[in-house]
Design a protein around this nucleic acid. Structure first.
Length: 474
DNA sequence: CCTGGAGTTGTCCTA
DNA sequence: TTAGGACAACTCCAG
């Protein structure tokens, strides 16, 4: 029996544009495909998604000619043991960029030694973070120059085709059943809304890309309106590598070739924001826990359990915020504009630490992503790389009127307010008694009054930021 | 080392 | 009703 090539699936749960799989299939050697569940993803919604994605991958590989071996534990022990057991002489995989995954890769390199060839491909990002530096050799901290430098390297490489077939390794090795990983919620099973909203796996990812290609020209105009289908909703598919950013880039470029070049740019730029977040995490590995601007460690946060609970469950009394938090809970996803509004509210009006908000998102988002999540929460808190003016505090009512003018989004996710006219739906506590009665809304009974005073908490936050600046200058 | 333009996403008050 | 300015400087980055 000839020695297999091991293809280790990580954040690239797909067949197309999968350089590790393609290289293995063309190596002339049999292929052993494996996924090792290592608890790097612990969020509940992510685990639900992962189950579906692995199920889909497993089925697709079987059609291609091989099974997917599933294990659970530390890859640094499991992979070398598998190499010894099977006599494999090569390991192909896709790179991951989380600090723990990078440590893991280093340890694996040492554990494998020279007898086993290792190939680690870069297909998770448009560019490897090491290839982009400022003129002085330091990492960028501002998006625009990063974007210019990154695009100056030219277009992203063209995606690779899926292999036509794979010669399966004929030996046998132990494998878990997918169900053994225990990724799905049971008592209670809260995943119904997720299943209605999403189709995890490569086929679902490609269908989503295909559907979005028809809307990309309107992205610049619609992306900020949570009541429309203005965004791509590709984030969870990209997170799990069910398609690559290169596939998205080229797919969108091809679909928009008859439009003016700048019509696709607002969306394509977002792919570089994804890259930028990973770039920041790569160069600043403390990003998930520690403010990038050290003076923010002294911000006077207030841990208030009741306030936090109201935010998490969508009972703050601000309809746009409650709509967002309920959409998140029901579907594992929230519109980007609304993420900014709820995050600003948590950090600036409630003054609850951004890390607490990030942890909730980590647990509830199907696209929970260490890089984007950390970088974005730090951006909102003002402690990140971008010098966000400290007075940029979102007013949830103003934002609601501006981006959900007819209240469609609110009506969908806060149905108890659906009867209110657009004029009042953004701040029901100001509606007159007759309007409320006609809409069948009794405040406190059907819907809470605001849990904080916007004006007072805004002033409090401004004062705290002023204080912070004064102290750090001294 | 110096210079100067620029920085994802805002709000509020005033005229 | 709407447009413009204040809010404050500071850091980043290229030349």
């Amino acid at each position: 029996m000839s020695a297999p090539v091991i293809v280790w699936f990580r954040r690239n749960l797909r067949l197309t544009d999968n350089p590790a799989l393609l290289a293995a299939s063309e190596s002339g050697q049999p292929v052993l495909a494996i996924y090792v569940h290592d608890e790097l993803d612990t969020g509940g919604a992510s685990r639900w998604w992962l189950h579906g994605s692995l199920e889909s991958l497993s089925r697709a590989l079987r059609e291609l000619g091989t099974d997917l071996v599933i294990r659970s534990g530390d890859p640094v022990e499991i992979i070398p043991a598998l190499v010894r057991e099977t006599g494999a002489d090569a390991l192909y995989c896709s790179r991951r960029y989380e600090p723990a995954a990078r440590r893991q890769e280093k340890a694996l390199r040492d554990a494998l030694g020279d007898d086993c060839e290792r190939k680690v491909y870069d297909d998770y990002l448009l560019r490897h973070p090491n290839t982009i530096k400022t003129g002085s050799g330091s990492p960028y901290r501002v998006f625009t120059p990063f974007y210019k430098a990154s695009t100056a390297h030219g277009e992203p490489g063209a995606p690779l085709p899926a292999p036509d077939s794979v010669t399966a390794w004929q030996g046998s090795t132990e494998s878990l059943d997918l169900a053994d990983l225990d990724l799905l919620p049971t008592a209670p099973d809260w995943s119904g809304g997720l299943a209605e909203t999403w189709q995890p796996g490569e086929a679902g990812a490609l269908a989503r890309l295909d559907a979005f290609e028809k809307h990309v020209a309107a992205y610049g105009k619609d992306r900020d309106l949570p009541g429309t289908e203005g965004t791509s909703r590709l984030s969870p598919h990209l997170h799990f590598g069910e398609l690559s950013p290169r596939q998205v880039w080229h797919g969108i470029r091809l679909a928009s070739r008859e439009l003016a070049a700048d019509r696709a740019e607002p969306f394509l730029r977002q792919l570089y924001w994804r890259d930028f977040s990973w770039y920041l995490l790569f160069h600043f590995p403390t990003l998930p826990a520690t403010p990038l601007r050290p003076e923010y460690a002294n911000f006077p946060w207030s841990e208030d359990e009741a306030m936090l609970r109201a935010w998490q469950t969508g009972r703050t009394g601000f309809p746009i915020i409650d709509a967002g938090m309920r959409q998140l809970w029901a579907t594992g996803w929230m519109h980007n504009r609304v993420r900014m509004i709820v995050a600003s509210f948590l950090v600036k009006n409630l003054m609850i630490p951004w890390q607490t908000g990030a942890a909730w998102f980590e647990d509830t988002l199907v696209d929970a992503d260490m890089a984007s999540n950390s970088a974005s929460w730090q951006w909102v808190a003002g402690s990140g790389t971008d010098a966000a003016p400290y007075f940029r505090i979102f007013n949830p009512v103003t934002q609601s009127r501006k981006f959900d003018p007819d209240g469609e989004y609110i009506r969908e996710w806060v149905p108890e307010l659906a009867g209110l006219p657009a004029r009042d739906i953004h701040e029901p506590w100001t509606a007159d008694g007759l309007t409320l009665a006609t809409a069948g809304v009794q405040l406190d009974r059907d819907y809470p009054r605001p849990i904080v005073d916007l004006k007072a908490t805004r002033e409090r936050a401004l004062e705290a930021y002023r204080e912070l600046r004064a102290n750090s200058a001294a």
